[in-house]
Design a protein around this nucleic acid. Structure first.
Length: 437
RNA sequence: GGGGCUGUGGAGCAGCGGAGUGCUCGUCUCCCUGUCACGGAGAAGGUCGCGGGUUCAAAUCCCGUCAGCCCCGCCA
């Protein structure tokens, strides 16, 4: 007789079933005792009345691996409406050590408890509510892939070990590479653009590394980026595609992860079909008028402004997601395309969701001569530098107008669920202070 | 990197100059036949982050140091 999952016990009511899993909780009442068994399907209650069977579990801790055979029974008094009676218990792997944290009840996500949460991540992830986060994240990733593929995008994987110089801006990790210096990729930027010259529409979902000494609720040194790039498009078309992607992902997740979202009391984001777009200047003006705090000289949005404009968009524009467009050239990267008629502004945008920047994108300068000029002017780099040489080759031999974005998978998951810190939506977070587990 | 706050048994907290570091959860033993954060009785478990100083007396006040959290800068 094969193995039955805890989630299928109800379907086998009246039959003998074999279960395998972990001891999740013991509730010893006396003559009747309840133990919860956990497997990949979830939890099921096993009723133990035979003292000899119960004795096998004496002093064994949560986490003990068990095989249990017994009779599946429909029982309205049981959690989930079914349970297992008259179990024969086999202890496969005995656990005698008391676990460092209790996993049968919700783990605290209070900021001051996150260190404990991550120190004990290996065990804490066995908590059903913690697992739910990463089931949702897996579905976000899956839904993103599915949507982009439906729009003719080709998935790729770019190298994360790169030669010294890169796009500039953020700090990079340096490492020894057989006596030479290498860096960890701070984005797939150059590779995805290069691949527009091959496939027109491409994306990857892979790790990204930033050596920023940031200590915030939004930053990590390693995170997963959904990087996409598409050719023969305008900024408007790019924004539409991103709106469509996020809508598709949210709809999909709400359809497939109902139980997991409920565990976090997640509220489905209110999103318009195409997200509203406000220019940087408009937002500064509105914020300054509304709060009296003058931000009109800022290049970027300050975090308070990001939160404020999201509330404004939710209330006035019917969308919890909002684009910020028309960025000052002073804050632009060398590969960003400037507006031809207004060269003080870049065709760049951020996507804000529920107060946090979840994606950044732009149209790219696709004309070789202009791109080389911007490279020299913006970061003083040589087109012959090994970090830029191959990137520029693509342009030398023909690149169409194109643009793309990078979206943080963990930030997207965080905001979909309604968590407060990006690390809560990261399996094993890496930040300035944490490199393990 | 700058500013603020916090470190007390395995987890979460209280005590904030004076008697024996107290509580909740967990762990162990015993009782309990429908629990579901079960309940009841008992027990074990702490150099109060670390170092120095002030004081008759320091978990408590001061200085340093280490660790963590939040905000800012930067970004996904």
């Amino acid at each position: 007789m094969g193995r039955v999952l805890t989630s299928d016990v109800a379907k086998h009511a009246g039959q003998e079933v074999n279960l395998r899993g972990w001891l999740h909780k013991k509730r010893l009442i006396g003559g009747i005792n309840f133990i919860l068994l956990r497997d990949r399907g979830g939890l099921v209650q096993v009723v133990v009345q035979d003292e000899a069977e119960l004795e096998k579990l004496r002093s064994l801790q949560v986490g003990t691996v068990l095989s249990i055979s017994g009779k599946a029974v429909e029982e309205p008094r049981a959690p989930g409406g079914a349970e297992v009676h008259n179990p024969k218990i086999t202890v496969d792997v005995a656990v005698n050590e008391e676990p460092p944290i209790e996993i049968d009840k919700p783990l605290s996500h209070e900021p001051e408890h996150l260190d404990t949460l991550f120190d004990n991540r290996v065990i804490g992830l066995r908590n059903l509510r913690e697992q739910a986060i990463f089931k949702i994240q897996a579905e976000v990733e899956e839904a993103t892939s599915r949507y982009l593929k439906s729009q003719d995008f080709v998935q790729f994987n770019s190298p994360k070990l790169l030669p010294g110089a890169t796009e500039g801006g953020a700090e990079v990790f340096k490492l020894d590479y057989f006596g030479k210096e290498a860096t960890l990729a701070q984005s797939a930027q150059f590779y995805k653009q290069i691949l527009v010259g091959v496939y027109e529409r491409v994306f990857e979902i892979n790790p990204t590394y930033r050596a920023e000494p940031s200590a915030t609720t939004r930053h990590m040194t390693e995170f997963i980026t959904i990087d996409m790039e598409m050719g023969f498009v305008t900024l408007t078309e790019l924004l539409d595609l991103l709106s469509n992607s996020v809508n598709a992902v949210v709809d999909d997740v709400w359809q497939k992860c109902e139980a997991e979202l409920k565990a976090w009391d997640a509220k489905k984001p209110v999103l318009s079909a195409q997200f509203p777009a406000l220019t940087m200047a408009e937002i500064h003006k509105k914020y300054t008028e509304a709060t009296g705090e003058d931000t009109t000289n800022e290049l970027d949005l300050i975090p308070k402004e990001e939160r404020w404009i999201c509330q404004y968009a939710a209330k006035e524009l019917g969308s919890e997601a909002v684009y910020v467009t028309e960025w000052p050239v002073a804050d632009a990267k060398f590969y960003h395309k400037l507006y031809d008629d207004r060269p003080h502004l870049a065709e760049r945008f951020d996507l804000l969701l529920r107060g946090v920047e979840i994606a950044t994108g732009s149209m790219r300068e696709h004309r070789y001569d202009k791109l080389v000029a911007q490279l020299k002017e913006k970061i003083g780099a040589s087109p012959d530098d090994p970090g830029f040489k191959y990137f520029l080759q693509a342009f030398k031999y023909g690149m169409p107008p194109h643009g793309g974005f990078g979206m943080g998978l963990e930030r997207l998951t965080e905001k979909i669920i309604g968590l407060a810190n990006v690390k809560e939506a990261t399996l094993f977070p890496r930040d300035i202070n944490r490199l393990a587990p």
